[in-house]
Simulated scan of single mutants.
Amino acid sequence: MIYIYLFITFFQIGLFGFGGGYGMLSLIQTEVVHRWHWLSTSEFTDIVAISQMTPGPIGINSATYCGYTAIHNAGMSNTMAILGSATATFALVLPSLILMIIISKMFMKYMNTPAVQSIFTGLRPAVAGLLGAATLLLMTPENFSTPSESPWQFWISCALFAATFIGTMFLKINPIKMIGYCAAAGLLLLY
């Protein structure tokens, strides 16, 4: 019976948890600590710390660990706790999966209509502007230095920026490889 409550609880959190994983944490805490008493406050705090340290989204990681701990605290075996972990994780992801399938089907059906084409035509410059704004926000003295403070660091940073742009845009070098190349160059030239 606890699996059904676990599924319903995390499905609701996945459905109404806007604002990403950090926005879900208060919902998860309210449900698993205060409402169902599956975890203590200290256990939940430990789970949040572990979720931040492990790779992946914090909301999904928290659901995974909460599902495991809830079943384990109910006195069931580790195998059953793993099933609880899978149940909570699946339930949290399911609303987003359903919404994305519906949106994808609608998009595939209407993607060639003039209204949808107009929407995407209008979105392209907005996305380019947002990427440009993010780039400008990162071009700070802390990241690039200034010519008056440290000319060497400034010009090396500008050269790495230009090389990355040219490498990914025109030479079609894999962006992950470019990150590695620039990290190595930064280590050699700026250390």
Score class of each variant (00 low, 15 high):
Leu99Val: 04
Ala63Ser: 12
Val93Asn: 00
Val116Gln: 06
Ala115Arg: 14
Gly75Thr: 08
Met106Trp: 10
Thr69Ala: 13
Ile119Arg: 12
Phe107Met: 07
Leu136Ala: 15
Phe107Asp: 09
Ala159His: 04
Thr121Ser: 13
Leu130Cys: 11
Leu83Phe: 13
Ile82Lys: 06
Tyr68Leu: 04
Ser157Met: 08
Thr168Val: 15
Thr64Tyr: 01
Thr164Phe: 09
Thr140Glu: 10
Gly84Glu: 06
Leu137Ile: 14
Leu136Pro: 02
Leu83Val: 10
Pro95His: 00
Ser118Trp: 12
Leu99Tyr: 08
Tyr65Trp: 08
Thr64His: 01
Met76Gly: 06
Gly59Glu: 02
Trp152Thr: 11
Val93Ala: 04
Ser118Tyr: 03
Leu130Val: 12
Ser104Ile: 03
Phe120Val: 03
Asn143Gln: 14
Thr64Asp: 02
Ala81His: 06
Phe154Met: 10
Ile101Glu: 05
Glu149Arg: 15
Met108Ala: 11
Thr87Leu: 01
Ser150Met: 12
Ala63Lys: 01
Met100Ala: 11
Leu136His: 07
Met76Ala: 12
Ile60Val: 15
Ala115Pro: 01
Ser145Pro: 08
Phe90Ser: 01
Val116Cys: 07
Leu123His: 07
Met106Asp: 06
Ser118Lys: 14
Leu137Trp: 11
Cys158His: 02
Thr164Met: 10
Val127Tyr: 03
Pro141Phe: 08
